[in-house]
């Protein structure tokens, strides 16, 4: 099967996400730290939404209704665990030189 890249900054494949889930690393905060997704230059702006979609594909019940999961058959996830990890500053990567020399405005 062709490799599917999930996180381009850190070169993480979709299969690595599934492998982490199979080992019990079940929420996105932990998956981020175990696989490295969202820890590169884009800080998750590209890959978290994809990851959320893949996790949602595993959900078998939503809003009290049964639904057919389209993800890997052996994986299940608690819908409560499907949330974006804490987003942290800076919004964009900042050069140290620019931080030191830049002018500081009012917050």
């Amino acid at each position: 099967m062709a490799k599917k890249i999930l996180c381009h900054c850190e070169d993480v494949e979709t299969e690595e996400l599934y492998s982490a889930l199979r080992q019990g690393y079940g929420d996105l905060e932990t998956l981020k730290r175990y696989t490295g997704i969202g820890t590169g230059k884009c800080q998750g702006k590209c890959c978290f939404i994809q990851t959320l979609r893949l996790l949602h594909d595993m959900v078998t019940r939503t809003g009290g209704m049964e639904r057919e999961a389209t993800g890997p058959k052996d994986l299940m996830i608690d819908p409560d665990d499907i949330r974006v990890p804490t987003l942290r500053p800076p919004v964009l990567p900042l050069r140290i030189k620019d931080i030191v020399e830049g002018e500081r405005g009012e917050p």
């Binding site: 820890t39 590169g40 230059k41 800080q43 942290r88 500053p89 800076p90 990567p93 900042l94 050069r95 140290i96 030189k97 931080i99 030191v100």
Partner: peptide, 19 residues
């Protein structure tokens, strides 16, 4: 950022991505 650049000036061109 100021302490990093003071200690290792070449790091001035490196970007901070998360705190």
């Amino acid at each position: 950022a100021a302490s990093l650049r003071q200690t290792l000036p070449a790091l001035g061109n490196v970007r901070i991505i998360r705190q």
